[in-house]
C-alpha cells in the first residue's frame, strides 16, 4: 500500500487532528507569552553578566 494513500481513518480523524494541532499551537503561543511576561516583570533576570551578581556579594556592614 502506497504511503500516500488516504485511509478512511484519516478522513474520520481529520477534525480531531486539527483540534489537537491547534491546541498544541495555542500552548506554544501561551508558553511564549508567559516567557515574555516573566521577562518583562524582571523577577528572574539579574543581568549581572559582566560584574558580580548582587545576591552573591556579602552584605556590607
Amino acid at each position: 500500500m502506497a504511503i500516500s494513500k488516504e485511509h478512511e481513518l484519516h478522513t474520520r480523524r481529520k477534525s480531531r487532528n486539527l483540534v489537537v494541532s491547534l491546541g498544541l499551537l495555542a500552548f506554544i503561543v501561551l508558553v511564549f507569552g508567559i516567557t515574555i511576561a516573566k521577562l518583562q516583570d524582571g523577577q528572574l533576570v539579574e543581568g549581572f553578566d559582566h560584574s558580580y551578581r548582587a545576591t552573591l556579594l556579602k552584605a556590607e556592614e
Partner: peptide, 8 residues
C-alpha cells in the same frame, strides 16, 4: 498580575 500571566 501581568495580564498574560493572569490569563495563562
Amino acid at each position: 498580575v501581568h495580564p498574560i500571566l493572569a490569563f495563562a
